[in-house]
Design a protein around this nucleic acid. Structure first.
Lengths: 326, 326
DNA sequence: TTGAAAGCGCTACCAC
DNA sequence: GTGGTAGCGCTTTCAA
């Protein structure tokens, strides 16, 4: 039951532990023949390298971190993102550690931070520890260019333009938007809102928007939609809140504005951040699939890049989802 | 920038590293005065113990694992569960590692497995490695009692009885149930289904149920609900699928069976697994809050117990959520 | 109450 | 192409 070590392997094979180590790592120092012999023996004896010893020697942690801020945790988008990140870390031979919201120490080689607000204390601590960080979908106000930091973002303008175009083709002349208050909202929410306004400007129409506090409830949502429908007389609605589109359907019905099927004429409902369970696959919701899993994967890949070769300045990159879920 | 080590601290304080180590661990070997002196110096110098070195010496990993099977990942329930687990691990000074679905090695001291199906290969590998495991909400067919294994489950009978009682008081005489096919469903889905039938039997009414495949789409859901409404003439509906209740509302409307507010007479809709975003807080859905975060926390606490003192047989425990979200 | 020394399992370096 | 040795930073044992 006691774990098999390198020395056990070496003894069994009549080799030195150096050779065995090199063979296992595949540094190309040993002959192909011994490499194979060692690999087979390792397999047979059930050898698993001791992560602690390796970490100690290599001076790395063999783990990457992921921080999802508390406010975001209800949304399945982040779950998919997380499993994309896990897959990326796993492919690179690292573990993925999920950080708590009170985390003070980070036993990782670097971390991905998704949708953090500007003043998040955990992120601040990561920065203080000069941990390599990839910000996914975020604009931390003041990032020193000395920090090993990168940013990967979705181009929300592209996504919103796509949606507006679909709605226009579907006959909408007065699209409305509902999103979060711009005061204390995550970066993507702000960008999406601006993108909506810019898109309307480009189409030469007035932007009709409503915003909600982060901790809004169903009544707040209803009132906001009611205002858009009754006062602004919108003929299509873009939802910039995850999970809200499904709830909006009965509300619109109740307001005398039933939602049409995606490919039929009438009032259309679009969601910028489709919740897979309730929204994607609904025939009444034009849902955008932001491919969160792929996003998480790309973020981790970028993290590995900046860990391996720390860049001079701050690296920027785009995640380009194949948005339309037909 | 090079990390401060125990030796650095010891030198700075004119003590041996043994003493410093003992002081930091708080083994009670050193005098209170030096303990304090060491703690202060550690704080001042920004000392952080090297996790790899500690792990190597202590022969533990300083991390706990969490495995969420792929089919489950869309649901925010698991996200909350995960963050409960993170909190528990963090409180115990451990990291929390998220395992990939192809994971072959587990650099952890034990793992929590939530809602795994009977033949999950990752779980099988964990068992082969005789890793301490806590099964949350699950019945793995053949668990050897030699394995350091524990099970923590929600009492779905309690939850379902609560719901049925609420519906009965609300005037329902022909409640219906919609859930997953019992063939390849997770343990909780099976138990909930049986609990519904048992509850109906106790009330002396016929159980009207419908089931869907794991990969059902919106049309399947609609047809199932249609059957329950038109053929079985149900006057209340219990949903055993997460995220489906919100979608069911417009469907019921369309079927000429509008859903009443929770506290008004009429057709009521209950959800056994409330999605916080779309369902909890909806006035039309009697949603059960299974307190997933607390569940995750309890699971990790149980895991730590069985790691510290491996039990003789298989430990069973209950998670008792304070279900009703008023 | 404190210190010295050994050693966890691995990989980097240097020698052959 | 292979082996010997040192040492990563920590905790454990044994000795004072």
């Amino acid at each position: 039951m006691a774990a098999v070590t390198l020395v056990d392997l070496a003894r069994a094979l009549g080799l030195s532990k150096t050779t065995v180590s090199d063979a296992l790592i595949g540094s190309g120092r040993v002959s192909e023949e011994t490499r194979k012999r060692v690999a087979d023996a390792a397999q047979a004896m059930g050898y698993v390298s001791n992560k602690a010893a390796r970490s100690l020697r290599r001076r790395n942690m063999g783990a990457l971190g992921l921080y999802i801020p508390p406010y975001a945790r209800a949304l399945s988008f982040y779950m998919h993102f997380a499993f994309g990140a896990v897959a990326g870390a796993s492919a690179a031979g690292s573990d993925l550690t999920l950080h708590a919201s009170e985390a003070r120490q980070f036993h990782v080689d670097g971390a991905v931070v998704i949708d953090a607000l500007d003043d998040d204390p955990v992120v601040q601590r990561m920065l203080d520890a000069s941990l390599p960080i990839v910000f996914a979908e975020h604009s931390f106000r003041s990032l020193s260019p000395d920090q090993p930091v990168a940013i990967i973002e979705i181009d929300h303008h592209e996504v919103v333009d796509f949606v507006l175009d679909k709605l226009r083709v579907g006959g909408a002349k007065r699209p409305g938007y509902i999103g979060l208050d711009l005061g204390h909202a995550p970066g993507w929410a702000i960008e999406a809102h601006h993108a909506f306004e810019a898109g309307c400007a480009r189409q030469g129409i007035a932007p009709r928007t409503a915003t909600l506090a982060t901790d809004h409830d169903e009544r707040d949502l209803f009132r906001a939609i009611e205002h858009l429908v009754k006062e602004d007389r919108i003929d299509a609605l873009v939802v910039g809140l995850q999970g809200a589109a499904a709830v909006a359907i009965p509300m619109l019905q109740q307001l005398g504005q039933p939602v049409a099927q995606r490919d039929e004429p009438g009032f259309h409902l679009a969601s910028l951040a489709g919740d897979p369970v309730t929204e994607l696959g609904s025939a009444q919701i034009l849902a955008m699939d932001l491919e969160p899993k792929k996003f998480g994967l790309s973020a981790v890949e970028l993290l590995i890049e900046i860990i391996e070769t720390p860049p001079k300045g701050i690296v920027h990159r785009r995640h380009r989802p194949n948005v339309f879920l037909g």
